[in-house]
Design a protein around this nucleic acid. Structure first.
Lengths: 220, 220
DNA sequence: GATCTCATTCGACAGGGTGTTGACTGGCGT
DNA sequence: ACGCCAGTCAACACCCTGTCGAATGAGATC
């Protein structure tokens, strides 16, 4: 199953004033400036003036393109989510071929996507606490991923590869939550963190033991 | 082992000017106001003026007692951490008696402590992204807890109750991270979350399977 | 009691960020 | 030539933070 993108709706125009197309390059310039500045300092330390100047416009003009600083981040987050969904593809549909390899593929691809945009991911984690829109978007996305994993776990139980136990949904929530927090620590690099080189394998082992009670689940 | 509180130092005076004792009640009033307001709105939506007025003083006077709004939260966090450490006690020293019961006790006590101060915990999670001091304090505390769990896992492996596998530290990081994120979702109530009634048992099952590969590890 | 000291308090200011208003510009269809 | 409108920005109003310097007043000291 390709992870269904039903709810979240038409993403890439979020926060954009319903305008002409002439200023598209300005909009891109703002987004580019945001991702660039995010790589060197925290989101909270970037002012709208920084974004505007970086894009070669004045502060009021910024408001012509985005409702707020947060709306810029929201657009960036949309991109990352889209990329992650594409990377995940239909791996979960082919679990039975080789469960360990497929789960690893799934976790590995998410890791690669988030790692490739760590500045955006970290910034979103930081503002999720204060911005309701980021919170809502992230909640909706997580819900999709949790649901996909829940369904996959139920499939593995049905074919006898995984034992019964926790409700599949609770297990899926716990495992997805673990990944999110562990990646955050690894990318942020503050506090106890798993080395980036090892993180996919560490997460994989916990997923496998939690789902199958073994690290070598049987193929079909 | 009682979880060692070596590094974090003398906690309860953080941010307080080294002053007389007359104004202690004012300080308490500020802290009380903070915890009360935190229960009804987000930390970012509370101004220093709110805290000052709530404590019956003017804004400049606030600065006599605390360096900043964040320093207030930091003091509140210190309290919660102290309470959690006390609640955890020496449970991990008595793991072999009945591993499942002891792990459940540990997770359950943390759950009770955090749940009893969810407003503070949620606020800290929200500002951790923007405030370096909260980040540092939380990182230090987590490091202690991770280390305690790591040691406990190694003990269980040594006595043959738990199989070898992931480095104990990586496993401890992953499991602690999971708890943190899952609790956050449960307390915040946005996005996919485990029901508060079930959360301890859900976490426990994942811990047991990840550490022992079974949900009924053997006592000594 | 007069005086001194020092913790405590706050009015007033400076600074920096956000979001809005109203006027200006220049390309383009008529 | 004229009007329209996307696009632009100087200037403003507002809010919040942090600081400074001048009061206040309770106890210690003479």
């Amino acid at each position: 199953m390709t992870i269904a993108r039903t709810s979240s709706g038409g993403a890439p125009t979020r926060g954009r004033r319903p305008g002409r197309s002439t200023g598209d390059d300005r909009e891109l310039a703002i987004l580019g400036t945001a991702e660039r500045l995010l790589a060197e300092r925290a989101f909270a330390d970037i002012s709208i003036d920084d974004l505007a100047r970086g894009a070669g416009i004045s502060r009021p003009t910024f408001y012509f393109y985005f409702r707020s600083k947060d709306a810029v981040l929201l657009t960036l987050l949309d991109w990352v989510i889209e990329e992650a969904d594409a990377a995940a593809g239909d791996v979960l549909d082919r679990l039975a071929e080789d469960p360990r390899a497929r789960w690893r593929e799934l976790i590995g691809r998410f890791h690669a996507t988030f790692g490739g945009h760590r500045a955006v991911v970290l910034a979103c984690a930081q503002v999720r606490g204060t911005n309701a829109e980021v919170r809502r978007l992230w909640a909706a996305v997580l819900e999709r991923w949790v649901h996909a994993v829940e369904t996959a776990i139920e499939g593995e139980r049905r074919r006898g590869a995984a034992p019964d136990g926790l409700p599949a949904r609770d297990l899926a929530i716990a495992l997805n939550s673990m990944n999110e927090r562990v990646w955050y620590a690894t990318f942020a690099g503050d506090g106890p963190a798993v080395a980036e080189r090892d993180v996919v394998d560490v997460l994989l082992e916990v997923w496998l033991t939690a789902i199958y009670r073994t690290t070598c689940p049987p193929p079909a």
